[in-house]
Computed example of a mutant assay.
Amino acid sequence: MTQIPVLSDATPEEILKAGYGATGGNIALACSFSVEDVVIIDMAQALSLPLRVFALDTGRLHEETYEVADALTERYRIKIDWYYPRHEAVEQLLREKGTFSFRESLENRHECCHIRKVEPLGRALKGLDGWITGLRREQSTTRTGLAPIETDTTNGGIIKVNPLLEWTEEQVWSYAKFRRIPTNRLHSQGYPSIGCAPCTRPVAPGEHPRAGRWWWENPEHKECGLHRR
């Protein structure tokens, strides 16, 4: 079993390097093209870490998300490995339950997320010893118990690295602006958290950053299944 380093008051850069050490470099970033993910890409490049990047195309992403992907490949000269849902599963879901079944119940929404995100993630992680996320503790009540580096028992016991876990939104944006990194223009239109287009909306000033994700659900349910514990 891989030894999990114990980190106390570590910087995101130190967490990234420890994650590489714990996995022997056989690790990749799960990129949703959020500002957090782009910050991690920039940090990895600054540290000269050979970063592998993959993304999940659910078939319902915003146009602006693809624009960020193109900007990243151009600026950082990285290759993004795209994973897509099984088309047979999507066709069956839409045929049997319709276009917006995910709004009818939590069970239906989890089914849609499983088909479009969770199953493709399993394929993306196959053969890896670890993966990197842009999760931050303050984002959601479902993320308070995370560790900077932990064992992902849901995905076969591989290493999960959360370099920005303790950073605030202000710290993330301070870094992004200082480094002038490409960011999703929806962020400036009131979207602090961006997922699939039908499941994401702008938030009002003072609202929680995750209030625009699955806004018809309770806060404790606002995960898609990628980060189950």
Rank of each mutant, 00 (worst) to 15 (best):
H208Q: 06
V90C: 07
P50M: 04
S140G: 12
P50K: 08
K79M: 01
P120F: 02
S34C: 04
D81A: 13
V161G: 03
E36I: 05
A44C: 15
V39E: 02
Q171I: 02
V39F: 06
S174H: 12
L186V: 07
L146A: 12
C196E: 07
S105H: 13
H62W: 15
A204Q: 13
G122L: 13
S140D: 08
L121I: 11
V161C: 07
F54L: 09
R136T: 05
E67A: 14
P205K: 11
G25R: 13
Q45M: 05
Y76T: 10
V38W: 05
P182G: 01
D37Y: 01
T11P: 07
A46W: 03
A124K: 15
G21V: 07
E96A: 12
M43T: 03
C31I: 11
A10Y: 14
K126Q: 14
R60F: 11
A204G: 01
L47A: 03
T65G: 10
T23S: 03
H208W: 00
Y76W: 05
E13C: 10
E119Q: 14
E223C: 05
K79Q: 11
H187Y: 09
H227M: 10
T23G: 03
A89F: 04
E220R: 13
L56F: 07
F102S: 11
S188Y: 08
E138A: 15
A22H: 08
I41F: 02
A176P: 11
K222N: 04
E14I: 01
G19V: 04
W167C: 05
I4Q: 02
R210V: 00
H227L: 11
I181M: 08
T73L: 08
Q45L: 04
K160F: 00
R75T: 06
P148G: 11
R109G: 04
D152T: 11
T144V: 14
N26A: 01
I194C: 09
T200G: 03
R116N: 03
E150A: 14
K160E: 00
Y84H: 13
K177D: 09
F102M: 14
A22E: 05
E96R: 14
P120R: 15
H187K: 05
L128T: 07
V39N: 12
R213C: 00
R86W: 00
E166R: 15
I194T: 10
L47R: 10
T141Y: 04
D81K: 15
T168H: 10
T2S: 06
R180Y: 00
A55I: 08
A10I: 05
A44T: 14
L186S: 04
I158S: 03
L226E: 08
Y76N: 12
E88M: 10
R228C: 00
R137M: 09
F178N: 15
Q92L: 13
H114Y: 14
T183H: 10
P163A: 00
P85H: 06
F102T: 09
T58W: 06
